[in-house]
Design a protein around this nucleic acid. Structure first.
Lengths: 355, 355
DNA sequence: TGTTCTAAGTTAATCGATTAACTTATCATT
DNA sequence: AATGATAAGTTAATCGATTAACTTAGAACA
């Protein structure tokens, strides 16, 4: 907290005995300035410790140099660390290009999400969104400013723009396959909701996913992959082995209880916090992993390798999602095009000792 | 992405047949406007879906309505979830008062931290900082704009301003006490660094902490509390039982190994990721918790209750830190005073089955 | 020498909202 | 009826950086 008065471009200009335009040209390098003057200005710039006023800059240039990021986190969610990693990735990339990151939380509430988007309208040049609204129409309508959007992690119905997703299908498919290879046959599937589209027929045709006629929620894809993997291994799909619940520890605990009462021999758990609940139940029942029951969790967490036995898990490249999303949106801002980029990142199958 | 042209206050004024000043008065409510006109303006405001341009606002009012938050996170840090919770707390409070949160990461690098602060100079009205610079002097010198600061989690030497900390002393003191009550006598202490101030004499006098003549790193306080608790229980302090390392899984693993070779019967681990490493080692050695060795971890994580046995831990009120820090800084911005607020939040002692 | 070009700067309008200072209408008071 | 006070709006300056349009000195060329 020093001088109350800020150094303006005008102060620099006066001290360097040039016009404000010249100072601006030196700073932004978009017009040729002679070496001599350039040096003089740079010297004064340093002497006065000048920093451009970003509000003025934004106002004039209609660029905010800021990217918004809306995460969807409920209080006790383990997704915290997942989204934090994404945020780190975004921030890292943005910083290197002189952009700022504004962070906000929709708390998985579609209405709050819309409010945030509204807030962001004049404040950001681009928005990275892990959407909770299942329909893009609503989102699109609240966007009245011109900014770029990149969706991550999930995709609302009717969205045709850029996105960075994880290949949920591949990871799950491989996981189920591995489970089967290890001799498990009655494989349960535990997940949190699929979104409003709960009727099953929606999930029968896989192409619908890519055609984006339904809400692409990671759980959808994982469920799809589960079914396809079973089918590819000539194991018939048993709806009794599939349970959906809310994304919570308790729900994981309860559903594991239900599922295990059905004499399954393995579980694929499509959600981190539910995995924790499930494991708690299994431990309480003194069931042996993997002898009594095999387990794969989605996605990986820091705790997965210190429980006993270490948990096999599908790991998502969270940081990389952030980096790619940021890269993508910055490029779009620099040169807006109407051809959309669709990025799908591979997951990693961490085989440990739970199957 | 609709109209390319933004709705300006002038557009609203024209359509409502009043002056821009009146529109502004209606929006901000800082001058009396008759009900009739107010209604008319509000109607147009809605019709045109007007949103004030924040750059223009900032420029004129010299308020950015933005708070910066700098976290210090290394790649594999479990502190991710801790700081994410804090960020949520901050964001929640800010949102309710119409402020934005800019997030950035110093990665525990003092130089990067300074750069970020420099960046923030003209961009924020206030800064919430989990400092990695151990000296406030450097930080203070890079601040040339007038903004409020609130420190959280740690305190650099020479800092006299506002802060929100956790009472690391109390939580640790209680934890060690409990350990002793449960019959443990040879209690090891594992921690990551104390900062540059590694020589021991600095920690002998507890008042120095409150006088802030040294860098207040949570680890310092925890170490202090460990020593005082031992002493209060007439247990002599054995330097061999104290090990410092870097904050990593591997280091936790290695130091636990070292410590356990010294025939201790319990460990207090002052750091989350090191706790994980330590537990890994203990599990590998097939040591029984708490029979062979008692454990308390600092701080709590989501995994602590699903390992076996569930881990006793000291839990920090992360979300609350964020809320309080935000509240504090917003109040300071609204009416700057020179009397500083020093908030210390209590931790919670989660007794589970590891001692 | 006169004309045209170019290089290197400068002038001043502009972005959109806020707000001090001003105007005008209305009403109360003597 | 004259004066003053107040209420309700308006005018226009202002915040700081950018940039299109302009100026001017000097070079290049016939």
């Amino acid at each position: 907290m020093k001088s109350n008065k800020n150094v303006r471009i005008k102060d620099v200009a006066e001290k360097a005995e040039v016009s404000t335009a010249t100072v601006s040209h030196v700073i932004n390098g978009n017009k040729y300035v002679s070496e001599k003057i350039k040096n003089k200005v740079n010297k004064v710039l340093k002497e006065l410790n000048y920093h451009p006023n970003s509000a003025a800059r934004s106002l004039r240039s209609t660029k905010t140099n800021t990217i918004g990021f809306i995460i969807p986190i409920n209080s006790e969610d383990t997704a915290k660390s997942f989204f934090m990693s994404i945020a780190e990735g975004i921030e890292e990339k943005l910083k290197s290009r002189g952009y700022n990151l504004i962070l906000s939380n929709s708390k998985e509430d579609p209405e709050q999400e819309l409010n945030l988007i509204k807030m962001f309208n004049t404040q950001v040049d681009g928005l990275i969104l892990a959407p909770t609204n299942e329909n893009f129409k609503g989102i699109n309508e609240t966007i009245d400013h011109n900014f770029q959007i990149v969706m991550i992690d999930r995709l609302p119905v009717g969205y045709k723009g850029d996105y960075v997703l994880v290949d949920n299908f591949q990871g799950t498919y491989e996981g189920i396959n591995e489970l089967i290879k290890s001799g498990f046959k009655k494989i349960g599937f535990l997940s949190s909701g699929l979104g409003i589209t709960t009727s099953n027929d929606k999930f029968e045709v896989n192409e619908e996913l890519s055609n984006n006629r339904i809400y692409v929620n990671p759980n959808n894809e994982r469920f799809q992959a589960y079914k396809v993997a079973l089918s590819d291994n000539k194991i018939s799909f048993n709806p009794d082995y599939v349970l959906f619940g809310e994304s919570s520890f308790q729900s994981g605990y309860d559903l594991a209880k239900q599922l295990i009462s059905k004499e399954i021999d393995a579980i694929f758990i499509a959600n981190n916090i539910m995995t924790m609940g499930s494991i708690k139940f299994i431990q309480e029942q003194k069931l042996k992993i993997p002898d009594d029951i095999g387990i794969i969790g989605y996605d990986n967490s820091d705790w997965t390798e210190i429980i006993s036995p270490p948990l096999s898990a599908i790991k998502q490249p969270a940081f990389e999602i952030g980096v790619q999303a940021a890269e993508l949106i910055l490029n779009k801002i620099q040169k807006p095009t109407s051809d959309f980029q669709h990025i799908k990142l591979k997951t990693e199958n961490l085989k440990r000792s739970s199957y």
